[in-house]
Design a protein around this nucleic acid. Structure first.
Length: 396
DNA sequence: CTCTGCGCACGTG
DNA sequence: CACGTGCGCAGAG
């Protein structure tokens, strides 16, 4: 079966578990996929990771355990009916597009699975809010960020991560204790998250615009990526800092929802800590993260589907375009559904200013990316971002 | 045994 | 209040 088919299996499985009122956790998903289709749990884990990266599937921490949600079906509680429409529409797209990370469910929480595992992963800083303490810890480790820090290709890591996570850990198959999968997921999520960055793509109106949502992210994010030299280190430090504020609140309240998302998001950032080190980055990222706050629809659309929505987001984003760092740009494209191409932007060190200067030919030939994605990126994103940015600023 | 269905309690808006 | 979630149980195979 193709990857698309496999995705469908996973989504169907999640839906099935949900309808049965059983928690769609890694173990159940792997088991059901194996039973129904005979595929290996490892493969399922791998594919699941990909789906999480794309946000077709949302990994959330609900009531203390990890659950997976079919993003296409997640809707904000608030408006049911309307959403439904949206949802429906989205579902159609679901596989392909994946999209939003609507946060709808209250369920989202921090997916921190076990701190241990996570930590082990190193790659990410999973713990989110729940563990304020951990944050401290994270930070420490953050510094090192051992795993992928050095690499230029954070993006890459995205893909890799899932894979690796998959391979190793997941072996939920009944016998194994769960550690493999469960914990793994933590890390996965992180990696995944990276991919997840998309949220960030949304609009970062202003760096710290979203307080609430942001906070969540921050907390999550901050630990890892954000950790700058100055901040963190100790919890003490942390608290005082922005995160601190954010953190606690977030953690406390939203554990569920936001947190989950956040984690992902933050994980994303984890990918490239270095970049983040800059303050601005942090801010920016956070903003992006804010996405969570955005309506699912938009986000989903974001993937490239609707220009309108996209443009909308862009507008907001454009404001900060000049402030975007290389990581921000890469995150944006990754979130927009072009993770591979995002790597190219990173490799070429395209930051917000560079992005504004890019011409069609630069995108089509200067990044060494395939023509198809390049055209879409230029027409739907680069051009729109530039236009929006200049319109706004010119006016002013 | 595993898989399924679902009552119910819980948390959220 | 409505609604999503998932535990824990009972029943089916």
């Amino acid at each position: 079966m193709s990857e698309a088919e496999y995705r469908k299996w996973i989504l169907d499985t999640i839906d099935s578990l949900r309808s049965r009122k059983a928690r769609p956790d890694l173990e159940r998903i792997c088991r059901m996929v194996r039973r129904r289709h005979g595929s290996e749990p490892d493969r399922t884990c791998a594919e699941l990771e990909k789906l999480i990266q794309e946000q077709t599937v949302l990994k959330v921490n609900y009531k203390g355990s990890i659950s997976y949600r079919n993003a296409a079906k997640v809707q904000r509680r608030s408006r049911k009916k309307d959403d439904v429409t949206t949802t429906a529409r989205r579902s159609a797209v679901e596989e392909a597009s994946h999209s939003d990370l609507s946060n709808g469910d209250s369920a989202f929480g921090p997916v921190d699975q076990d701190e241990e595992d996570l930590e082990a992963d190193t790659s990410m800083a999973m713990d989110t809010d729940s563990n304020a303490d951990e944050e401290g810890a994270d930070e420490s480790r953050d510094g090192q960020d051992g795993p992928s820090p050095g690499r230029p290709e954070a993006d890459t890591s995205v893909r890799c991560a899932p894979v690796r996570a998959t391979s190793a850990p997941c072996s939920p198959s009944g016998t194994r204790p769960g550690p493999g999968c469960g914990p793994v997921s933590g890390l996965d999520s992180a990696s995944v998250q990276k991919a997840g960055e998309r949220p960030s793509s949304l609009p970062p109106p202003s760096p710290r615009a979203l307080t609430h949502n942001d906070w969540a992210y921050h907390s999550a994010v901050c630990p890892t990526e954000r950790q700058h030299p100055g901040m963190q280190r100790d919890k003490a430090a942390t608290k005082p800092a922005v995160h601190s504020a954010a953190t606690s609140p977030c953690a406390l309240k939203n554990n569920d929802y936001a947190a989950g998302l956040q984690e992902e998001t933050r994980n994303v950032s984890d990918g490239r800590p270095q970049a983040l080190s800059l303050p601005s980055d942090n801010c920016t990222l956070k903003n992006k993260l804010d996405i969570t706050s955005f309506p699912a629809e938009e986000v989903s659309l974001l993937n490239g589907v609707k220009d309108d929505e996209v443009s909308v987001k862009k507008e907001s984003m454009s404001q900060n375009l000049m402030q975007w760092t290389v990581s921000d740009v890469a995150s944006y494209f990754s979130a927009a559904g072009f993770p591979e191409q995002a790597v190219a932007f990173r490799t070429q060190e395209i930051d917000g200013k560079s992005l504004l200067l890019m011409q069609r030919s630069d995108v089509l030939t200067g990044l060494s990316i395939r023509l198809g994605p390049a055209l879409k990126i230029y027409e739907r994103h680069v051009k729109v971002l530039q236009r929006t940015h200049f319109l706004e600023y010119d006016d002013v």
